[in-house]
Computed example of a mutant assay.
Amino acid sequence: MFAPQGPTLRELAVQALSSVERGYDLLAPKFDRTPFRTPDAVLTPVSRALHELGPFDSGLDLCCGTGAGMGVLRQVCRERVTGVDISAGMLAAGRAREGEPAAAPRVEWVRADARALPFGPVFDLAVSFGAFGHFLPRERPELFAQVHSVLRPGGRFVFPIAAPARPGSWGYWTLLAFDAAMRVRNALWHPSFVMYYRTFRLADVRAELTRAGFDVELHALPELGRRPDGSPRCRLVVATRTR
């Protein structure tokens, strides 16, 4: 799962015993060589779907990390692309990977907490990839309110969400064990490291987005396959600011 140039077991252990911010600062130089980076197999179909929804003038990558999603935004935004993350180390790695900035769109990297975004309603599009497990369920309403506040009327908040693992499957037990281990870790060790895979449920998220002032649609991502019952393995949530 990890490239030979990726983090060692000791480095992962140190990261796991740190806070979220400090942990990602430590992991940043090798993050792109871990399975935690959103794979191109996910980014490519999302990019296709956004091309069909766009074009857009300005885009925000929420919890951008080293910038995997920034590449998607650069393909669909004409004027401005902004990445926001709480980890200075991840932002520095993203800037370094980007190299010389292109003429358009303008690219910005901003250190900020996603729960307190330092922008007005200036974006047409916001995306996020793989970051929602870092927010407890009680924090999501404020998170979604923040995204709503930085979108222009009619702006869209878009992110992929995978179908839950079938009860009793290998994936189900793996995620259950991970979340249980994380809860034990946070009960015994401080600072806490919030990362839970099973708390971001589509029905709950859809209701919370609606309450935040979004109109929510779901789009299948057929490139990512279907489950045995015919349902998509992954959907794209498209939440449009309606008020």
Rank of each mutant, 00 (worst) to 15 (best):
D124A: 02
A102Y: 00
V216Q: 06
L175E: 12
V194C: 09
V42R: 00
P35W: 06
V216C: 07
R138Y: 08
F159C: 01
R138K: 12
R152F: 01
V147P: 05
D85P: 04
D61T: 09
V127I: 15
D25V: 13
R185M: 10
T199C: 03
V84T: 09
F135T: 03
V76P: 01
P101A: 11
P232L: 11
D61Y: 08
Y24D: 10
P39Q: 10
R211W: 00
R233V: 04
V194Q: 13
H148M: 08
P45H: 09
V107W: 04
Q5H: 07
H51Y: 00
F193S: 14
R185A: 04
P141A: 08
R183T: 12
L43G: 10
L188T: 13
Q15W: 06
R185C: 06
D179G: 07
R198M: 10
L117P: 11
Y196M: 12
L202P: 06
G89R: 12
L117M: 10
G230T: 05
G213S: 09
T38M: 06
P137Q: 09
V150G: 00
T8R: 13
P4D: 11
Y196W: 01
G120C: 05
A112R: 08
P141Y: 07
R140Q: 07
G225V: 04
H51D: 07
S19H: 06
V147N: 00
A203D: 14
S19T: 08
L53Y: 03
A145R: 15
R33M: 11
G89P: 12
T8C: 07
L224Q: 01
P45C: 08
T44E: 13
V110C: 12
Y197P: 00
E208T: 12
R22N: 07
L136C: 04
Q146R: 13
G94Y: 06
L188E: 06
G6L: 09
F119Q: 10
R140T: 09
E139I: 11
G67C: 08
G89L: 12
G230F: 04
S47D: 11
P141N: 10
